Amino acid sequence: MKKRREKTTEDYEKDSAVSSVIAGVIMIIIALWILATNVTWVSFAISLLLIAVGGFLIFIKRAERKREAALKDENSPQSVSHRKELDRKIQKAAQKAHYHKGLKGELYYRTVKIAVGLFIFALFLLLFVIAESSLPYIIIAGAMAIGAVIFLIHAASGKDYKQALAAFKAADGGSAEDAESEFAEGALFRCGGDAVCVGRDCIFGCMGLKTEVIPMKIVVWMFMNQKLQYNYYNGVYTGKTKQFFINFCTSGGRIFTYSCSEEGGILIIDEVHHNDTGVLAGWSDELWELYAKDPAGFLEAAVGAVMPSPYELAGKNDTRK
């Protein structure tokens, strides 16, 4: 059987361009057909809207390419504007990073509040559906209510908080009070369902309900990577977004990866360097080859390597549909 070729960035770019042009042309044709068959102020307004949307879809890829080219020029207005906006986001994120609850507050009380909110919503939804809808909708709403109850019980048990304390004890050997102090004094950065808290001696990585504790002493390298998300709505290309991830590479060969914002990743790197200047930062193919070959001897092997910027990204052309 012939092996299926993996899609490249060029493939995604071509697919998205074809999709948007076809959708744009179809919308313009529909608009012209409406004008040709029924000329009223309503049909005229609808046709203008369809033509505007169609034109946007036809030229969206061209606009994306122009913006990407402008961002590569450090002196372009777009590049200057992007740097100013990024600086503003960095300052805002830095101010928020140290204003957060302790470990129990984040992993127990915060989760319980979310669970209670979901339970109340599910309960009201179930009562409304029972009064207004048919049996299939009642079954769906009932299943949601049961799921909310299960989540509330799980949250109230404090299982996630207890597991985080156990992970801290295994990684650092400290007590619950040490874990609370380490987390409370650390800098916390959230992105989606992930969160990273950089403490003095440990990094707390939260992915959903799971919290991993990474001793700073075993982290030898960290880097950000970027993936391009191609967005479609009913098969029509609507644009692409950038996703950022922070990666912590340990001397044991394990890599911990968490979602982050662009400004969050920059600040995480700065926080780790503030607490431990021995951790290398920034991506290069040479560093990756050295790490893949010997994680335990990475720092010694990297002494003669050319060091990239600490904020140099990996996977700039990676894609995920």
Rank of each mutant, 00 (worst) to 15 (best):
I46H: 05
A171P: 00
W41C: 14
R88S: 06
E74W: 07
A97R: 00
Q95D: 02
V42K: 05
G186W: 02
F119W: 09
H100I: 01
A93I: 01
L126F: 14
H154T: 04
H98P: 00
I139Q: 13
G54A: 06
G173F: 05
P77V: 06
T40Y: 10
K169R: 01
I114P: 00
D178K: 07
L50Q: 15
I46E: 04
G142W: 09
A167C: 01
V42D: 10
T111D: 08
V149S: 14
H154M: 06
I146A: 10
A94E: 08
G54W: 04
A70Q: 09
R67V: 14
K66Y: 11
K92E: 15
R83H: 04
V112K: 04
I146R: 03
E132G: 10
F59V: 06
A179K: 05
S133E: 13
S43C: 11
L165K: 12
I150V: 14
A69T: 13
A166C: 02
F44Q: 11
Y137V: 09
A170S: 10
K169S: 05
S81A: 12
A166H: 11
F59S: 06
L107V: 03
Y161G: 04
E106P: 00
S157C: 02
A143L: 14
I138L: 07
K159V: 07
Q95C: 00
M144C: 11
I140Q: 07
I138C: 10
E74S: 15
S79K: 10
A145K: 02
A63V: 09
S81T: 08
S81L: 09
S76Y: 14
L86Q: 07
L118W: 03
Y137K: 15
Q163H: 11
A164Y: 06
A164C: 07
K92Y: 05
G174K: 02
S79D: 10
L57F: 06
G174Q: 02
G55Q: 03
S81C: 03
R88Y: 00
